[in-house]
């Protein structure tokens, strides 16, 4: 009887091993959406933050440590986006295989050519400047496509059995993003808008890809709330340039932008999601880019 029980227990364990898939944890929902595109149901994936959260400021919850402690691959954005909280999560998780430099750590920011790299000296008097460049590259469909290929390679290393699937899906996603980028560019061009204002430099990569210029930000410096004089300056600037659109990342307050709008005729202020899950109908990267593009019309 005991022998039979042991055999049954062993078989159950073996079957669970056979069903085990790679556990992936991402820091943001955009990175999670990328994993879903490349791996589909071949992996289980969870994001530490929600799409409605500002990923700069996240509480280092012990529940996040639990998730990271049990994962095989941690996909983060890097370029200091998560610097205020991810190191604490990693220390608490005590999972050597996902620490920086290990195969279980994929820092997407190390695989892209960043924009907004500050020139000359950088110090805190410039606000929350990212010394290695703007970390919001996931809002560029083309870079996201390229990162899908990088992710496919890493997943193939960790799970060689499904390597061909990852590579195939990555290639398809890359092509889809190139095509989507072109169609969105045409759609936005038809709006006639060439210059806009944003709250933070979150949309830099998207705007750069779509040939739209960001002429100012509601924040006088990254992470610094606007002063009355800065708002007055924005009113003057948007009036002189006949600016038609201010896009506000939907986790920021609309109030300062609405103050500007009040003084500038024809100026539209639009809240936009900048993360997958940031709005109920935005469930993939493609839907996210389309939602941002839609705000131009």
């Amino acid at each position: 009887m005991i022998f039979k029980t042991l055999v049954l227990f062993a078989l159950l364990n073996l079957s669970s091993l056979a069903l085990a898939s790679i556990k992936v944890v991402t820091t943001t929902t955009n990175a999670k959406a990328l994993v879903e595109e490349i791996a589909g149901d071949l992996v289980s994936v969870d994001s530490l933050t929600k799409g409605s959260q500002d990923p700069h400021f996240v509480e280092a919850k012990p529940s996040f440590m639990m998730k990271v402690a049990k994962c095989d691959l941690l996909v983060s954005i890097g370029l200091d986006l998560e610097i205020g909280w991810l190191p604490s999560i990693l220390r608490g998780a005590r999972n050597a295989k996902v620490m920086q430099g290990q195969p279980g750590s994929l820092i997407l920011g190390e695989k892209v050519k960043p924009l907004d790299i500050p020139h000359g000296g950088v110090s805190r008097d410039q606000g929350d400047v990212h010394p290695d460049g703007n970390p919001h590259f996931m809002l560029d469909p083309v870079r996201a496509g390229e990162l899908g290929v990088e992710l496919g390679k890493r997943l193939s290393e960790l799970d060689s059995t499904n390597s061909s699937q990852y590579q195939k899906r990555a290639k398809l996603f890359h092509e889809k993003m190139l095509s989507l980028s072109e169609s969105l560019k045409k759609k936005i061009a038809s709006s006639g808008i060439k210059e806009i204002v944003t709250h933070h430099k979150t949309l830099t990569y998207f705007l750069n890809r779509m040939d739209i210029q960001s002429i100012a930000t509601i924040e006088p410096k990254p992470g610094v709330p606007p002063s009355a004089s800065h708002i007055l300056g924005l009113i003057k600037l948007t009036k002189s340039k006949a600016t038609k659109l201010i896009l506000i990342e939907n986790y920021f307050e609309m109030t300062p932008a609405l103050r500007v709008q009040k003084e500038v005729p024809g100026l539209k202020v639009q809240s936009v999601p900048v993360s997958v899950g940031g709005e109920s109908n935005v469930n993939s990267l493609a839907q996210l880019y389309e939602a941002i593009a839609k705000s131009f019309n």
Partner: peptide, 14 residues
């Protein structure tokens, strides 16, 4: 008078 130094990494700062 107590001065405690914590080691910190952070970093949207230098």
């Amino acid at each position: 008078l107590c001065l405690s130094v914590g080691f910190f990494f952070s970093a949207h700062q230098v």
